[in-house]
Every structure is written in C-alpha cells, then in structure tokens.
Amino acid sequence: MKMERLSQDKIRIFLTFDDLTERGIHKDDMWREIPKVHELFSEMMDQAYTELGFDASGPLAVEVLNMPAQGMAVIVTRGKMNFSHSDDTLDDEVDEVYELEVTMDETDQITYAFHDFEDLLRMAKVLNPLLIDGGSLYSYKDKWILLLDAELMEEKLLQSVVAILSEFGEAASVTEAVLQEYGKTVIESDAVKVLCAKFS
C-alpha cells in the first residue's frame, strides 16, 4: 500500500491486488459493503494519518479507480465539517467518524513507471514482439511512465505484458489525465515500437 498527498485535503492510495489478497478481499468486494472493506478503509486512514498527517474526520469523498493489472487507486478528498447542527447531531457525527461518498470507476489503461531509461529500453525490447502497436510514453516526476491500453488484449497476453512490465518497472497509479496535464509527452503513440526502432 503506497500513498501520496495530492493537496492539503486530498490523498491518493495505491493498493495492489496482493494488498487486497493479504486481507482476504477480492477486487469485486470493493464494490460491496462488507466488514473487511471497512477494516481496510480504517487501516488506510490510520496509515494516511501516520505517514502524511492526513486527518480523515468529517465528510470524505472516496473515488476508487480499478486498473486492469496494477490494482486500485483510491483517491480520498476531505470535505468541510458543517457545524451548524444541534449538539445532538454533532454527537452522532463524532460516533460516525467517516461520512463517505464513494464512487467507483474502471480503466483499461496499464500504467508502469521506470526510474531508469536503460530499464525502459530493456523492457521495450522484450515486450516489442508481443505488441502489435500502442503505448504512450510520458516523463513525470523524474520517472518514465508507459501507458498501454489493455482493452484489446486477451487475458493471456495481458498477463504476459504485465509480467514483463513488472520485471523492469513498477505499477503506477497516475492517470492519463494527470500525465497529460502535468507530465511531458515523450512519445505519443506506439511507444514500445518507437523506442526499439530509435535505440536498437
């Protein structure tokens, strides 16, 4: 479980499928109201307070983004407390620490980060024979970020692609919108083929 502060009132938590499996949670369980998911959320909020000083009391908006191979990105935004209630209502709010508004979304994007350009090139050479086309490469926060579309991949190919990506890089929870806004586009399309052609 990795987390980062996006702003004073917003954090992003990245959960791998291993994080979920260790807690006996299947990815489909994240869509359901079950005690294990509540325990996981409490654990995430405790860790966010310890690591980032993020106080999760009051109303929270939680966005869960399911990524095909990497796991889940959970974005938690803290709202403002409304103190215009009577004393009785305020006591109820203290008991119910988290007032949640949860939205779920899925993406077909596979996003991997590479710290070293040499690792990125080695990965491209291994991956190239498997891919017909596709992929965008960005530079973001001193890392190379490769984005691939999993929508057209069969399950077996997807597993092979993820295995190769995992060998050379690490799963990233950054979205395409963030990369386009704050990152730099290095190769807009067919990134793996272009890397192999230019650096063979």
Rank of each mutant, 00 (worst) to 15 (best):
D133C: 04
L121E: 02
F114H: 05
N128V: 08
P68A: 10
G79Q: 12
F83H: 09
F117K: 12
S136D: 04
D29H: 08
V102K: 05
S136Y: 05
L120T: 05
A48D: 03
I11M: 12
E22Q: 07
V97Y: 06
I145K: 04
L131K: 07
R78Q: 11
T16K: 02
D105V: 00
D88N: 06
I11S: 11
D133F: 07
F117G: 08
D19T: 10
M44I: 13
P59Y: 15
R122K: 14
S42W: 13
D55R: 10
Y98K: 00
G24A: 09
T21W: 10
F17G: 02
D46R: 08
V64G: 01
N82G: 12
T21D: 07
F54W: 10
I25M: 04
D105R: 14
I145T: 06
Y49N: 09
V126E: 15
Y49W: 13
D29C: 08
E96Q: 15
D142F: 07
A61Y: 05
E99S: 13
F41E: 10
K10N: 03
M81T: 12
V74C: 10
Y138L: 04
Y140K: 02
M67G: 00
D55T: 03
L100T: 10
E96H: 05
I13E: 01
T89Y: 12
E106R: 12
K141P: 01
A69D: 09
S84V: 01
P35T: 08
D95Q: 12
M45Q: 08
F83K: 04
W31N: 10
V64K: 09
L15H: 02
P129H: 08
Y98T: 06
V94W: 10
D28A: 15
A124T: 06
L121P: 00
I25K: 03
E101Y: 12
K27R: 14
L146N: 00
E101M: 08
M104V: 06
S86I: 03
D87K: 14
L52G: 09
M67T: 13
L121R: 11
E33Q: 13
G24K: 03
D105E: 13
K125L: 13
N128I: 03
E106Y: 10
G53T: 06
V37N: 10
K27G: 08
T77P: 00
A113R: 11
L90M: 15
A69M: 11
A61E: 11
S86F: 08
E43K: 05
V37H: 01
Q8C: 01
D87N: 07
S57C: 08
I11A: 02
I25S: 07
E93H: 14
D29W: 01
I25D: 05
L60H: 01
A48S: 06
D9W: 01
D105M: 14
L60P: 03
E63I: 03
G58I: 03
S136F: 02
G134M: 01
D88Q: 06
P59I: 05
L90Y: 12
S7L: 09
Y98P: 00
M44T: 02
E93Q: 14
D119P: 00
Y98H: 06
Q8N: 14
T16R: 07
K36M: 12
S139H: 13
Q8Y: 13
E39G: 04
M81D: 11
Q47F: 04
G24S: 02
A69N: 05
F54S: 06
F14H: 11
S86H: 06
W144Q: 11
M104P: 00
